[in-house]
Design a protein around this nucleic acid. Structure first.
Length: 367
DNA sequence: CGGATTTGACCCGCGC
DNA sequence: GCGCGGGTCAAATCCG
């Protein structure tokens, strides 16, 4: 690797970086305005929920924290992807601690998009959900090739660059992805897991960069990308890729464990392992329409959810459940912050957003 | 001092 | 084949 350091400019660099950081926390940097977020002004308020003072996690905001913390908790993912029981030990990538408002259809059948129509920024460090998970060995399948590839490069002291192309003929397979939009000033939403940022790239046609994070837990290859909508900077698009193979490192206050099956995030591969104790109990299907086309879920007005999941991503509808009902209950009360019109595919190129979020939706979300 | 972040370079897939 | 853009790597740097 040719890393030519600007020796003479080190100081300048440092200064520059410091300045950037400084400004990011208080400056007008449109991309980094995640600080100073009124934790009290949150989703809860907006949607009429009783907010827990301080930082609230997604689940907290959902007002579901009093759900039984079953041995096997469930993440939003579970909710979104209720499916037939998969093999144990597969954890769903956990969504951020914000109410999801599903969105558009993802280009890749395995991509799910959820739009969080929520105005509130929550504290960046708000601990939130406790995803469901079961510790143990991970059973990976089909969609895990990418992870393998990474491990390969890691194990081999040399980088790919040095070694040359890997798996030439093997088209690199991506893990199923799940994306959702969140209206928040916080860029990196705390979902209870620990992430390490490993890259940042500018996004074509967008003034905002896209950040790449990887779960810091050893053996967990879950990644997530975070970027802001170029049209509406207040909207953060988070895309999860892969499944956690562990429990959340943090056991946030009010952590919420969905009594749902952990099948979540079982993507179209249907290969993702399910969690043990995961008996499909509830299904918020009514909140998440799935299909190949975009679906607009209008109902819980305060929480417009649109899922773009492919039919095989989301499992078949499961029997209604108290959970489901509860959700509905909680989400329907307050008036819709913004009603979302039927979605239609956008042709605009907005980087990742383009892939997962219809421009109209983005616009609306901004309303 | 160790973990997290930054950031330019490199790899790779895809469209033309 | 080439260029572009997304994604990843890893040394340097920051920070608690």
């Amino acid at each position: 690797m040719d890393w030519n350091l600007p020796h003479a400019d080190d100081e300048l660099v440092k200064r520059r970086r410091k300045d950037e950081k400084t400004s990011s926390s208080s400056g007008p940097n449109p991309y980094l305005q995640n600080h100073e977020i009124p934790s009290t002004f949150g989703f809860s308020e907006v949607y009429g929920f009783e907010a827990d003072k301080g930082s609230l996690g997604f689940m907290d905001l959902l007002g579901l924290h009093d759900y039984p913390s079953a041995p096997t908790g469930y993440s939003l993912f579970d909710i979104l992807h209720p499916q037939p029981p998969p093999p144990p030990l597969e954890l769903p990538a956990v969504p951020p601690d914000l109410p999801p408002t599903p969105v558009s259809a993802a280009p890749e059948s395995s991509d799910n998009v959820v739009m969080n129509h929520h105005q509130t920024p929550i504290t960046a460090n708000s601990s939130s959900l406790s995803p469901s998970s079961n510790e143990g060995e991970t059973i990976r399948t089909a969609g895990d090739e990418e992870v393998e590839g990474e491990e390969v490069s890691i194990n081999q002291e040399k980088t790919r660059k040095q070694l040359g192309p890997k798996k030439k003929n093997q088209k690199r397979q991506r893990e199923p992805r799940f994306a959702f939009m969140t209206k928040s000033q916080v860029d990196h939403l705390d979902d209870g897991y620990r992430w390490r940022k490993y890259g940042q790239k500018g996004v074509k046609n967008s003034p905002y960069p896209r950040s790449y994070y990887r779960c810091t837990t050893a053996g967990c290859g879950v990644k997530k990308r975070v970027e802001r909508s170029s049209e509406d900077p207040s909207i953060v698009v988070t895309t999860y890729e892969g499944q956690h193979t562990h429990l959340t490192p943090t056991t946030p206050r009010g952590s919420f464990m969905f009594p749902l099956e952990t099948a979540a995030y079982r993507s179209g591969h249907g290969s993702l392992a399910p969690s043990p104790a995961t008996t499909p109990l509830h299904s918020p299907q009514s909140y998440f329409y799935h299909h190949q086309q975009q679906h607009l879920y209008s109902p819980p007005q305060s929480l417009n959810i649109i899922s773009s999941a492919s039919s095989d991503f989301l499992g078949p509808s499961l029997p209604n459940s108290s959970f489901n009902q509860d959700l509905r209950l909680r989400f329907t009360s307050p008036p819709p912050p913004a009603s979302l019109p039927p979605l239609s595919t956008s042709q605009r190129d907005d980087g990742l957003l383009q892939d997962i979020v219809p421009s109209e939706m983005r616009k609306e979300a901004n309303a």
